[in-house]
Design a binder for these strands. Structure first.
Lengths: 137, 137
DNA sequence: AACTATCTGCGAATTACCTGCAACTAGTGT
DNA sequence: ACACTAGTTGCAGGTAATTCGCAGATAGTT
C-alpha cells in the first residue's frame, strides 16, 4: 500500500504529467494553461497541451487548483491552498494586484444582505487602472 | 444638410446594418455579438457576423455601447447610456443581477485608498451564486 | 506478471473573433 | 440628377484558445 499522496488521496492516478502540472501551477502562481505547459516542458518536453488542459480541469475538480478570469486574456490557474485573494487587473499595464479577501468582506457581505448574492471575488479580476497608469494614461 | 442623427453626429455613416446593431443592443440589454447578429437578422437576414463585430467595436469607440465580461461565455454588449451598474453573475443558473454603482462605491473607494487602484466594476461581472442557487446547490 | 480503468498523445473539430480585399454605397460636391 | 470617394459591407480565410475522439500507454490492483 502506497503512502498517502495528495493526488492519490483524491482518487487520482499519480502520473508524472499530473504532478508536474500541479507543481507548475504552484510555481507560477497565476498562469495560463499555455504558461503551465511551458513550465512543465522544462522537465517533461513531450507533454501535450490537451493533457495540461485536462489535468488543470481534473485538479480543479478535486480542489487542488482554481481558475480565475483575469482581464481580457484567457483563464488563469492558481493553487487552491494559497491565501484566497481578489485580483485587481490593470487594463493598461497588465499588472495584477492581489488583495486579501478581508478587504472585500464588507462589500461581499452587503451583496448578500441587499441582493442575496453570494460571491467569490477570488474567481475573477476586477478591471481598472493601477495608480501609475491612472496618473499617466 | 441632414438633420442631426446620433450616428452621424459622431462621424459615422448611417447604414442600415449599423442602425440595426445599435437597436439590437438596446433591445437586448446584455447580448453577445452572436445574439446581436441574430436579433438583427430578424429584419436584415443577410448581415454578416464580421459586420456585427466591427459595428460593435465602432459603436463602442464613439461611446454608444460598452462591453463587459460576464461570466465564462464571451463578451457582452450593452447600451452606454443606460444607468451604469455592476453585474452579479450566478455561475449556476446564469442569472445576471444588476447593481447600481453607488452600492459598490465604498468598495471601489477603498481600493483607491488602499491600493491606488481605480476600478470600473461595470466592466465585468462578479461571479457567485444567487440566493436560489445558493440555498439549493 | 497479468489485468483494466485511467490517462496520455495526437490530430481534428469547435468556438470566438479578426483580417484582407474586392464590391458597394452614404454622403458630398457639381 | 450624376459622379466621386472614403467609409462600409460581405465573403473567404485565418488565428488562438480550448475541446473531443480514439488508439495506445501505464498506474495501481490482484
Amino acid at each position: 500500500m502506497a503512502q498517502p499522496h495528495e493526488l492519490r488521496e483524491r482518487g487520482l492516478r499519480l502520473t508524472p504529467q499530473r504532478e508536474l502540472v500541479l507543481k507548475a501551477v504552484r510555481t507560477l502562481g497565476h498562469a495560463t494553461p499555455e504558461e503551465v505547459a511551458e513550465e512543465v516542458r522544462k522537465t517533461h518536453p513531450g507533454i501535450n497541451l490537451s493533457t495540461v488542459y485536462r489535468n488543470l480541469e481534473t485538479l480543479e475538480n478535486v480542489g487542488l487548483v482554481q481558475h480565475a478570469h483575469l482581464g481580457h486574456g484567457g483563464v488563469r490557474y492558481h493553487p487552491a491552498e494559497e491565501e484566497i485573494h481578489a485580483h485587481l487587473n490593470c487594463e493598461k499595464c497588465g499588472a495584477i494586484i492581489e488583495v486579501p479577501l478581508d478587504a472585500t468582506a464588507s462589500f461581499t457581505q452587503s451583496l448578500i444582505d441587499n441582493y442575496g448574492f453570494h460571491t467569490d471575488l477570488s474567481h475573477l479580476a476586477i478591471a481598472g487602472r493601477c495608480e501609475a497608469c491612472f496618473i499617466k494614461p
